[in-house]
Each structure stands twice: as C-alpha cells, then as structure tokens.
Nucleic acid binder design. Structure first.
Lengths: 108, 108
DNA sequence: TCCTTATTTAAGTCTTTTCTTATATTAGTC
DNA sequence: GACTAATATAAGAAAAGACTTAAATAAGGA
C-alpha cells in the first residue's frame, strides 16, 4: 500500500489531523473519530495499524494506554513527489510563501 | 473517490508524471505506460477517465486523437491539506526553499 | 461508403479494502 | 488470582477498484 493509499481513507486523514495537533491515546481517537464516522473501536484500531505499518504514526505504551504520535516521514515523501507539479500554478508559489512564513508552535 | 485515492494508483501517478512534462495524446501515454506496466490500452483509457473525472487532466480532441493536459487544481487541494503537517520537520523547511527557488521552464 | 486508426465504454472477474462481531491480550486494581 | 478497562487481532461479509475481452464510436482517407 502506497502512502497515497494510506491518505486516501477519510478516517485515516481525520486521525492524522488529530495527531497533527497533539499526541493522543487510542481511546481518545476512538472517542472523536468513532462518533464522527459512526464506526467501531475495532475499525479505528485497524486504521491505526495501517498508520503504524506505513510509518505515519508511532506508538508508546503508557500503562494500558497506547499513545499515538505522528511521524511526518511518509508525508514528506508524498510531498516530495508532489514537488514536480509545483511550478504549474501561481497557487503553488503562494503556498511556498505560506510555508516559508510558517514556523508555528511546535510540539515534540 | 478522493483526490488521494486518485493518486494512490501507480499507473495514474505515472501518467501524471508524464503529463507534468508535456501534453500527450492518449496513444502516446498508452505506448509508454502500457509497456512499463504491462496493461492494455483499455485499462489505461479507464485510468485517464478517472483523471478526467476528478479534474487532474483535461482533454482536447485533435482529429481522432485525444490530447491530455494536466490540470493542477486537485493537486493544489491535496497540497493544501498537507499544509498542516509542514511545520513538523526541518525537511519541510528545506522543501519550502526548494519551491521558492523553483521557477523552472513552464509549458502552457 | 467501406476500411483503418484512435479511443472509449460495457460487462464481468478477481483482488483488495473496510467494515462487523467475536475473541485475545495486557495492565492495573481489589 | 479474578475482574475491569484499554486495546489489538481474527474471521468473514460487503463493497470498491483494477483489470480483461469484446463491442461501440468517431475521424480521415481510398
């Protein structure tokens, strides 16, 4: 499964959005995403596995909880593939400026 | 089908790579991609339809030929979704520089 | 008009993905 | 050690995706 396929699923994209904000326990993600999409804990656990297996997230046990943290490496890869299209539109130049200005709050 | 799903298929990614270089007739794409992936003209035509239907490419009839041209709009959209992850890694800052330096040859 | 070339569309098969329910695992508490 | 809470895994059903072959469409030339 290619990184783009991983990002193809709306549940997984939502999970990544949540993890982009902060680290979260599996159960917290289940609480949010489960409600939003109306799917079971099991389904979400399976999506978390896909994210793990493809390097989008890392886990750390904290007692009985599994704390998920984003790993941007595969996203960088995707971003680099996209690179070849960036000269096609002024929109991309605008984006470049955005990125350069970036430097928002950063979490470890 | 989400834009990320469109990009999830290796054949479609290859077609987009080709179209990023220049406009091409369907048959030219078939010649390249068909050989590389060992799939039929029909299969490729179906991939081209997906690209059309999701706004990644536009077609223009030229006699019996269909000339395909890339349309970056959905790629920009994807790129914007990715935006929220860009502050996570120095790699992204490096990319930003890359993009800013960009300004390669442009085709219409 | 008939034939050829370029391409799309239809129909059906096979594979992969995404769920569900049921069960297993593991940590902490009584 | 038994019970509960948090999570993962197994098995199987249903849906979606990516092919194939066969047929349709449309342009251009003899």
């Amino acid at each position: 499964m290619h990184a783009f396929d991983v990002l193809g699923d709306p549940v997984r994209r939502r999970i990544l959005e949540i993890l982009a904000e902060d680290r979260h326990a599996s159960g917290e993600i289940v609480a949010i995403v489960g409600q939003e999409f109306g799917i079971t804990q099991s389904a979400i656990s399976q999506h978390l596995k896909v994210l793990r297996d493809h390097g989008f997230a890392t886990v750390q046990a904290e007692g009985p909880r599994r704390i998920y943290k984003i790993d941007p490496a595969p996203i960088v890869e995707v971003d680099q593939w996209l690179e070849r299209f960036r000269f096609w539109e002024p929109k991309f130049e605008a984006l470049a400026v955005e990125v350069k200005r970036g430097q928002r709050k950063r979490r470890k």
